[in-house]
């Protein structure tokens, strides 16, 4: 934990990494490290959040993020309730406002929302008094993913971010993971590169604090880590790509690319992976690949997020 005992987590919600200072981020990662220790115990449960309620409101399909939040909450002894899109009022045309107010009436401490509309988490946070965690909103933000990526990289890089170079590879335009990682790692002093065909780069990317490449062999030169993004197959159907085989020929990260990077290069992927499309099979299974570290870091990081949000007012005189 940080030595500064006067530090207080200042946020009601976690909507985007742009709200975090470097101090907030490092404090959160410290808390996550302390929870990672719990995850290695034979009995992986502590009573810290006993009596707290966490609602998992996932309007968009998700298995791993939802499970990760669920495990995180349960290991802290919080009760979790899931509201899925299928069979719910969302399918009956209820507005996000009304669903939010309904959930609030059940007095949860935290709502984790995943939603296909950018800005949905912020909308709920402005509407509701409970804490909101953005579990991914449209193409906008996925703060817990960026924090867990930071956690994995911090460990792999022995705590030193400054001066490192990270390449984000793939569909940047439609990626909340790319946006959140770009903001967070830039704040921590990491040099960022992006590599994608022009059709998968967002508008205004020339104003981002990044170097942009369309050729992977050039982009990967001397980097400390590569973050592969999942290619959604509907991008090809939408006419953004000619065919997946050509995409894979140009942008699938292979062993021959990694020989151009730093010798100790790490590979990240937010999952689920399309082996052979954006990441080659052998890289996916290589020791350099941190994918499973990321999953385990995900639980610890989300424990830290839930803990900091729900206990921020503890100790205050009521």
């Amino acid at each position: 934990m940080t030595n500064d005992t006067t530090y207080r987590w200042p946020h009601k919600d976690l909507l985007d990494v742009t709200q975090l200072s470097a101090e907030d981020t490092l404090h959160l990662l410290d808390v996550a490290a302390s929870f990672q220790e719990i995850n290695r115990r034979p009995v992986k449960k502590v009573p810290t959040l006993k009596g707290k309620t966490v609602v998992l409101f996932f309007v968009e399909n998700s298995t791993r993020t939802k499970t990760s939040f669920d495990v995180a909450a349960k290991r802290l002894s919080a009760d979790t309730f899931a509201l899925a899109k299928t069979g719910s009022s969302i399918n009956k045309g209820e507005s996000l406002k009304d669903t939010g107010l309904t959930l609030q009436a059940m007095a949860p401490d935290v709502i984790v929302i995943r939603h296909p509309s950018s800005g949905a988490a912020r909308f709920l946070a402005e509407l509701l008094p409970c804490s909101i965690v953005n579990g991914g909103d449209g193409w906008h933000a996925h703060p817990t993913q960026a924090l867990l990526d930071c956690y994995s990289l911090r460990h792999a890089w022995n705590g030193i971010f400054a001066g490192r170079t990270l390449l984000i590879l793939g569909d940047i335009a439609h990626s909340r993971v790319a946006r959140s990682n770009m903001h967070l790692l830039h704040m921590l002093g990491v040099h960022l590169r992006l590599c994608a065909p022009r059709t998968l780069l967002p508008a205004g990317v020339e104003h981002w604090p990044v170097e942009i490449f369309s050729d992977l062999k050039t982009a990967v030169r001397d980097v400390d880590a590569v973050m592969c993004l999942r290619l959604q197959l509907e991008r090809q159907q939408a006419g953004l790509l000619p065919d997946l085989a050509e995409y894979s020929r140009r942008y699938c990260l292979g062993r021959h690319h990694l020989t151009l990077a730093k010798p100790e290069v790490k590979v990240l992927h937010p999952g689920p992976m399309n082996r052979g499309l954006e990441i080659s099979n052998d890289i996916a299974d290589a020791p350099a690949c941190l994918v499973l570290d990321q999953v385990s870091a995900g639980v610890a990081t989300r424990m830290a997020v839930l803990y900091l949000l729900t206990t921020r007012n503890d100790g205050e005189l009521v």
């Binding site: 950018s118 800005g119 909103d137 449209g138 946006r179 508008a203 104003h207 981002w208």
Partner: peptide
């Protein structure tokens, strides 16, 4: 509008 703001907000823009 498709531009710097839409890119950061992650919102589909119109050029």
């Amino acid at each position: 509008h498709e531009g710097e703001t839409s890119g950061l907000l992650g919102v589909k823009g119109q050029p």
